[in-house]
Structure formats: C-alpha cells, structure tokens
Amino acid sequence: MIYQYYPGCSLHASARDYDESVQGVVKSLAMELKEVPDWNCCGATITPSLNQLQSQILPARNLALAAENRGDVVVPCNACYMSLKKIQYNMAKYKVVREKVTEIFGQAGLRLTGMPKVRHLLEVILEDVGLEKIKQMVKKPLKDLKVVNYSGCQLVRPLGFDNPEDPQALDNLMSALGAEVLPFSQKTHCCGGSLITTQPDLAFQMVDSILEESRAVGADMVVVTCPMCQLNLDAYQDQVNRKFNRTLQVPITYFTQLMGLALGLNKNQLGLQRGIISPFKALEKIG
C-alpha cells in the first residue's frame, strides 16, 4: 500500500527517533510512505491562537499538496493529525472557510483538487495491517514488559478515531505485541505540551500526574503516539521530578519503537538511544 507521509516538524528534529522507528516499522509491514512534497508546518496550537484564517490556510496548503498525489495522508503526530482533520471538518461545515481558503489559494497559485483522507499512523497500522497479521509477524514478543499506554489528547479528541475517554487502539496493539498493558486512567489526560515553555508551573503538574500514575501502577515505560507528548514527558522529566521530589525515572517510548523491537528490528535502527531517559534498562526484560 502506498501512503503519503506528513511527518510534521518534530519528526525532522526533536523526534528523529520517532521518524527512524516509523521508517523501520513501515518497511517491515510492506507499507510505502512517500513524503508530501514541500509540506509546511500545520500551525499546531499556536497559529489558531493568533489568527483564525492563518490557522486554516496553513494545514489547507498541505492538503492541497497531498491532493496532487494518490494515497491517504498518514500522520504520526497527534497535533498535526488534529490540525489537518480540523481544517477538513471546518471546510466541510463552514461555507465562509471554504470560500476564503479557495480565494487565497487562487491568488497564491494553489488549488485543492480533492480531499485526501487524513489518518494517524496508529490508525493505519491497526486498520490496514490489522492485529492478526501483526501477531503473526511478531518475532520477539514483548513478554514481561509492563507498559501504560498514553494516547494523549488530539489523537482522540475532537475528531479522533478512538474512544475519547478510554481509547483501545494502543492497548490492543501493545497486547498483540505481547506486552502487559496496565490499567491507566491518565490515557487521555493532557500532558500540557502547549504550555510547557510559557507556563511551566501549570504544565509540570500535568506531566507529574501522568508520570506518578505510571509509577504507581508499576509500569516499565509509558508508550506514546505523539512527538509533543514524548518531548514533554521525556525531556522535562528531570525538572518535573526535581520539583515534586520524585526519584524514579520512567522512559517514554514511541509505539513504533516497541513495535520495531517486537518485529525483530535492530535496537539501533529505532532511535532508542535518543531518549533523554534511556529505555535500555527497562528493555533488558525482553532481552
């Protein structure tokens, strides 16, 4: 299957590890990802806070570029996924948005020739490959590895593909890979990613409650689907721990990294060494 890949800004920088593991995993699954040519930043949560129309036009340009080619748009980042889905929703629902975007596009030499389907990488893997097939492909089950699955916000809200309060997709995938999935009430509680630079006090509390519950239930690691969540929970963990007097570190891994391991890929191809909190000790369990 051919897909169009919209990596989003992080995967080319702070989330290189995610990108590396995505590339490894999709190859094993015989999925072909072609990067949307010349894509731009989706605006995340910033642009919509400053200018409504700019926040529509940015993701819309990406859709216009993607519409030139065939294949669904696959997005590994929760925030980009939501931005792209939201502009689709707004264009379908609001005539003004449709008209303004078309008019501006006309002046800038852009045209939206179709509406490609926007899907999160997790969604694509579960729906197009399927759990059964993945189970058969597992070479090295993640046996004894205790994980909590953190879907975050924008994968499931407001236009996501899974239950917004108690998503199942990631749980099902991790169980299929052989990991032990622990109950986790923080699955979709916000980590405060968009506030971490400007209002760290607020965000640190949010990070801490996620990490605290993962420790309390005895998780070896927190599994994530989004580069923003990863950065927030991983890179800021030391600061958060200092503030709340916690000693235990919890590695934050991408679902694709664990999937890569289970499918028998080499550790070093999966960017695992790039975690600020190293996952290697926890991963010793699976050898």
Binding site: Q56, Q107, A108
Partner: peptide
C-alpha cells in the same frame, strides 16, 4: 507561497 498565503490571510482580516 507560504508567506503569501499567510499575508493574504492576515489582510482578509482573518
């Protein structure tokens, strides 16, 4: 192109 669409969006009082 990105610059242009951002500017146009701003002009539209968007």
């Amino acid at each position: 192109q990105v610059q242009k669409i951002l500017e146009l969006a701003k002009e539209r009082g968007g």
